[in-house]
């Protein structure tokens, strides 16, 4: 593989996980980030499920987009992509249920939620806009998912501790969680100065 291509690949990998973290910098997928982050194990399960679906969706949407381009139907992107993602989620759910019951038990409850996770549709749209090829798209999807997992697991572990502390009545629940996330975003801003390549 060429050096420049390799660099682009690693650049996408690092920026999607750290400096351009999908949740804390780009704000994709805040709903599950807030909703499924009360316990570390569920957060990890959600993160894994999202990573898996994001990589698959990036691959599938790359292919679908080629078809759309050939037919000059690019304006149908949003509609078609969301349908593709919804069917991928459905197929993954059925496949896991039949052949990997253990994994299904761990991820099952999170899968239906993923259809409306904007990280998945977001990565598919961003891949097309940036003009990534097949490999770069898949790497961007998977790395975005890893970034999501990293953020949600860290956040869940802080939240477990914060829930036990006292805080003003009006800030109980979501407000304090949002402020926690804000401080995490501040920490992740530190990565933005880091240019590896």
């Amino acid at each position: 593989m060429e050096g420049a291509y390799m660099q682009a690949l690693l650049g996408i990998l690092f920026s999607a996980v750290l400096s351009e973290n999908f949740i804390l910098v780009k704000f994709y997928g805040i709903c599950p980030f807030m909703g499924v982050s009360k316990k570390i194990d569920t957060a990890l399960g959600m993160g894994m499920a999202v990573t898996f679906v994001m990589a698959l969706a990036s691959a599938a949407c790359y292919g679908v987009n080629l078809v759309l381009e050939a037919l000059e139907l690019q304006y149908m992107q949003t509609v078609v992509f969301i349908l593709v993602i919804a069917s991928i989620v459905q197929v993954v759910e059925m496949f896991l249920k039949k052949s990997v019951p253990a994994l299904y038990k761990a991820l099952g409850v999170f899968l239906p939620l993923i259809t409306t996770n904007c990280a998945v549709l977001g990565v598919a749209l961003v891949n097309v806009q940036a003009g990534y090829d097949f490999l770069l798209s898949v790497v961007n999807g998977a790395a975005g998912g890893l970034g999501f997992t990293l953020a949600i697991v860290l956040f869940a572990s802080i939240r477990e501790r914060v829930d036990k502390s006292e805080c003003p009545q009006a800030f109980k629940g979501f407000p304090i969680a949002l402020i926690t996330a804000g401080l995490m975003a501040l920490a992740f801003m530190g990565f933005s100065g880091m240019k590896i390549f």
Partner: peptide, 13 residues
């Protein structure tokens, strides 16, 4: 991004 989280937290509170 930091400001988004902080301000929304305070608005909800």
């Amino acid at each position: 991004p930091v400001g988004g989280f902080l301000v929304l937290g305070f608005v909800i509170a």
